[in-house]
Write a protein that binds this DNA or RNA. Structure first.
Lengths: 99, 99
DNA sequence: ATTTCTGTTCGTAAAGATACGAACAATATT
DNA sequence: AATATTGTTCGTATCTTTACGAACAGAAAT
């Protein structure tokens, strides 16, 4: 495992990872809503968005795995919030990227 | 064709489109280089990047179709440049998005 | 005219993304 | 205990992305 050849810098990988998470309009919509009010329930988003519930779960998972949001179960509902640390990291990277 | 139901706003679609283009580290690397020196030949990038020539062409096409770069043939070479108008559009959208 | 240089496009394979409904799990309510 | 509510996960189908080498195309030089 020390024989891993890095093809890209950590920064390039990070920018790509965050950008990828923003690469679908429904995920942009989710994040816009979430950044506006910081937190939101799955159900409230499902009412507004033009996708099936299961598809929404998948997109939320993508955002979670990219580190941009975090979810917590607040039975029987699930509440999703912006992960502020990574959100700010992404913000800084993107601003730096565009100069 | 008037019966098109819009699922997302133009802004959401645009952010997703630009983000998608940034969604692969090699494309991030290309744009970093290009934004640093404004223009660059295909061949010079090919020397540095860890991908085949044909793959590079594909990635450049993705960036072109997203509007972030433009290419012009300067025989026998091909020169690629940042599309400044769209670059600034993307910059503005991303900054607005992250607040 | 043929060869060289540069880059694109084609063909193709493997992997990932997106979508949905059905089935499942966990908690709360009856 | 049975039911209802809320989301997640599973199974599946379809499409897209990424990658490569081979074949191709255009201009320049021999």
């Amino acid at each position: 495992m020390p024989t891993e050849i890095k093809k890209y810098t950590d920064k390039q990988e990070l920018i790509a990872k965050f950008s990828n998470a923003l690469g679908h309009p429904v995920r942009v919509a989710i994040l816009q809503q979430l950044s506006k009010q910081s937190c939101c329930f799955h159900g409230d988003m499902a009412e507004v968005l033009p996708i099936a519930n299961s598809t929404l779960s998948q997109h939320l998972k993508v955002l979670r795995e990219a580190g941009l949001i975090q979810g917590e179960i607040d039975p029987p509902k699930t509440k999703y919030c912006i992960n502020k640390e990574n959100w700010n990291l992404a913000k800084g990277l993107m601003i730096g990227f565009f100069d």
